[in-house]
């Protein structure tokens, strides 16, 4: 399911003295099956965009096309229910939205709300708990008795239980410890591959954007200022500086080393493994460095 934003502008409290413009003429196409990262500072419009992806917000001007559903500015779209089921959003600190008595009921709430039979919702809850690396015993527990990291996983399971085609993630690892971050990000990468999901990741982490995404969009002051592959985006060091964004750590180190040696590597290394591989072959006897 493609998602297409055309000339989308949005203002909070439009038409009142408190009007605040948050988006200006944003064009962004997220093709079905792609992994799109959206990066930018707090207040750059990332979260406002995100809320357009399943029509929580409707554009003040412009058009949002979500699969076969078209949402035009100024019109009241009907039948948003299917959009909301097909586009699952994992909000920031999603554990704040847990509310049911047991983990099982909490995970089942979403799908049952969309008309999934109880038996099927139950089956999904049991399957997802395992998929997210939680022991089956948690199903009977109150979500509020779990640790922060476990609560986060339960909340994510609740979104996955709706079986969405598009998964939108708003800073999904904020506040988790390093292992938790890695596990969750690898899980999303796996779901993306195995279920053929379209994934949209809103993140502050240049490393995650570089490692996981096919394409990166940079938001700045409500505008989409750069869009391209990680290689294209992170090659524009000066532009990134203008937007007060940093390079992924591996690229930063690569640049320092290039400056020191005068040797320019043929591509950007977006992960520490890629960088180490390239450095090792440059410095190993018989490697390119000895030629």
């Amino acid at each position: 399911m493609d998602i297409k934003l055309q000339q989308v502008s949005y203002a909070y409290a439009a038409g009142t003295p408190f009007e605040k413009r948050a988006l200006y003429d944003v064009d962004l196409t997220i093709p079905s099956g792609s992994y799109q990262a959206i990066i930018g500072h707090t207040g750059s419009g990332k979260s406002t965009i995100l809320q357009h992806l399943n029509a929580i917000l409707k554009p003040t001007s412009g058009t949002v096309q979500i699969g076969d559903k078209r949402i035009d500015a100024g019109q009241k779209p009907k039948e948003l229910k299917s959009v909301r089921q097909r586009v699952g959003i994992v909000f920031q600190f999603p554990e704040h939205q847990l509310f049911e008595e047991t983990v099982e009921k909490d995970i089942m709430f979403g799908p049952m709300n969309f008309g999934v039979p109880e038996e099927e919702a139950l089956r999904r809850a049991h399957e997802l708990v395992g998929l997210l690396g939680l022991p089956q015993q948690v199903l009977e527990k109150s979500p509020f008795d779990l640790s922060g990291g476990q609560m986060r996983r339960v909340a994510i399971a609740g979104v996955l239980a709706m079986d969405p085609e598009v998964l939108v993630l708003d800073e999904p690892t904020a506040g988790l410890d390093p292992r938790g971050r890695k596990e969750i990000m690898n899980l999303f990468a796996r779901l993306h591959r195995e279920k053929g999901l379209t994934t949209v990741l809103v993140t502050h982490s240049m490393e995650d954007a570089g490692r996981y995404a096919d394409r990166i969009a940079i938001m700045h002051s409500g505008k989409c200022v750069v869009e391209g592959t990680p290689q294209e985006v992170f090659a524009q060091t000066e532009l990134l500086e203008d937007f007060r964004l940093e390079l992924p750590q591996s690229v930063k180190l690569q640049r320092t080393i290039e400056e020191m040696t005068g040797h320019e590597f043929p591509t950007l290394y977006l992960t520490e493994e890629e960088l180490a591989e390239a450095l090792a072959s440059y410095w190993t006897p018989n490697g390119e460095g000895m030629n």
């Binding site: 520490e272 450095l279 090792a280």
Partner: peptide
């Protein structure tokens, strides 16, 4: 981390 990866690759 990078240093460890380099050592693992014989540097």
């Amino acid at each position: 981390n990078v240093a460890a990866l380099l050592r693992a690759r014989g540097l």
